[in-house]
């Protein structure tokens, strides 16, 4: 009985997520090739934006600022073998990226020729896709600036 094969079940469901006014504005910007951030009531610039201030639960302000897609890597993790759902299908780094003008980090992929080029504090810029749909993947990845 020890050679009984191990059954594999695949659980798969499609989802359609309504975004709400704040995330909708962020995603609409991405579709148009723009990166938008919002401010908390204490003036902190959040990118990605939230409906609220994560530290207090208070609603965010209606004050928005546009960022230009350049930033600094706050931290990174190297992925040698990408999974089927990863942004890039070649070795890449998952990064926390502090966009210029933001007070929070954005999670995205950074493409470099090899792992040796990755460093905390390195400057990166967004590489946009030509065809954009309103999704974080409208930024294909970030690359060294």
């Amino acid at each position: 009985m020890s050679d009984t094969p191990v059954p594999i079940d695949t659980v798969e469901m499609p989802y359609v997520r309504t975004l709400g006014p704040v995330i909708s504005r962020f995603f609409t910007g991405l579709r148009d090739g723009e990166i938008w951030a919002n401010k908390t009531r204490t003036g902190k610039v959040q990118c990605p934006p939230f409906e609220y201030d994560p530290y207090t639960g208070e609603s965010a302000s209606d004050d928005w600022v546009q960022l230009d897609g350049t930033g600094t890597v706050s931290s990174w993790a190297w992925v040698e073998e990408p999974l089927r759902n990863h942004l890039l299908q070649e070795p890449f780094a998952w990064c926390l990226i502090r966009l210029d003008g933001a007070d929070t980090d954005l999670v995205h992929a950074v493409r470099v020729a090899d792992k040796g080029q990755m460093a905390t504090g390195m400057r990166v810029e967004a590489r946009w896709r030509d065809e954009r749909i309103g999704h974080l993947r409208d930024i294909e990845c970030f690359e060294p600036a």
Binding site: T4, V6, I8, E12, R17, S24, R25, T28, G134
Partner: peptide, 26 residues
């Protein structure tokens, strides 16, 4: 605005391995 992006489409797909217990095998 009417042409704003209002939804995000995504597919969640996960594979699970389930080794059977002795009772389940029998």
């Amino acid at each position: 605005m009417s042409d704003d992006v209002k939804v995000l489409n995504s597919v969640v797909s996960l594979d699970y391995e389930r080794p059977p217990t002795r009772a389940a095998r029998r």
